[in-house]
């Protein structure tokens, strides 16, 4: 009896260790990667086709700018910098945080799969993170990288050590920011399904919005995405620093460097909300 109890306690201890959770996460993902690699032709075709689609988008943007010269004072290369960073970071986030994708997670909650996860003796956040992993997001990531490469060749950026070191932090900030939006949307689906659509506007609409320089938007919209959802600090202000452009909005230059902080802040707020949601979660009973 006592032995059994000790064993149980030991097991519980192991389950809470970070190393165990880390291993568990990789195991959950590994299964999915192996499964998805079974359909190699489909995988390659999909990446190829989305690559062609994106190329067409880029081409038409290039054509339009050829005719107009610039967009709000930004050249094609400079726009590609914004577009590439957002595309790359969003793809990366979409690969890591797919489990929290509100439209998918909402379905899991409605169909009761989320209840199954809750019954397992492993950290719930790790389980949800490991519940979906789409290898095909590599396509979007590669496309982002490609657009970014265009930006590098078109927009003559003066690289310094500071810029090289800061670039990964900007990408990290963007990943955290979008991941935070996904987590908030997922948590919202504990209460209502309609919240998902509203969040989709923020995530997909937000990423589309951030692909263009923020000063082109009407004031009220830009203020919303400065003070309520601080998206403007994640790639617009860093881009001003990388491309050495002056700020048409006339704010402090320091704002170019808060991107990682804003991203982590967003993720922190989202995780707090997620924990609050889990605590108050009531199953739909299905």
């Amino acid at each position: 009896m006592k032995g059994a109890q000790r064993q149980h306690e030991q097991a519980e201890g192991i389950v809470k260790q970070p190393l165990f959770l880390w291993g568990m996460y990789w195991r959950l993902i590994g299964v999915q990667v192996r499964a998805q690699l079974q359909y190699r032709t489909a995988f390659v075709l999909e990446i190829l086709s989305s690559g062609i689609t994106l190329f067409l988008f880029f081409l038409s943007m290039a054509f339009v700018l050829q005719r107009f010269g610039d967009l709000g004072g930004w050249t094609l290369g400079e726009l590609a910098f914004l577009w590439g960073t957002v595309e790359f970071a969003f793809g990366l986030m979409d690969m890591i945080f797919s489990g929290f994708d509100p439209s998918n997670f909402g379905k899991q909650v409605r169909q009761g799969f989320f209840d199954q996860l809750l019954l397992r003796p492993v950290n719930i956040t790790v389980q949800v993170l490991g519940s979906e992993f789409f290898l095909r997001r590599l396509g979007r990531i590669a496309q982002g990288a490609l657009i970014f490469a265009f930006a590098l060749s078109l927009a003559d950026i003066h690289w310094t050590v500071g810029k090289l070191l800061y670039l990964p932090l900007v990408i990290g900030g963007l990943v955290c920011f979008f991941g935070g939006l996904f987590i908030i949307g997922a948590t919202g689906s504990f209460w209502t399904v309609d919240s998902i659509e509203a969040m989709n506007i923020l995530t997909y609409g937000g990423s589309e919005m951030m692909a263009y320089p923020m000063h082109i938007y009407p004031d009220w919209l830009r203020r919303t995405f400065t003070y309520i959802v601080p998206a403007i600090f994640l790639n617009y202000y860093p881009a001003l620093y990388f491309l050495e452009k002056s700020d048409p909005l006339g704010l402090s230059q320091i704002l170019s460097f808060i991107s990682p902080l804003v991203g982590m802040g967003m993720l922190g707020v989202a995780l707090a909300f997620w924990r609050f949601g889990i605590k108050h979660y009531q199953s739909t009973g299905t």
């Binding site: 107009f68 967009l71 709000g72 263009y212 919209l221």
Partner: peptide, 8 residues
């Protein structure tokens, strides 16, 4: 917004 910025 993109159109307005393009036209200038």
């Amino acid at each position: 917004a993109v159109m307005v910025a393009l036209y200038g």
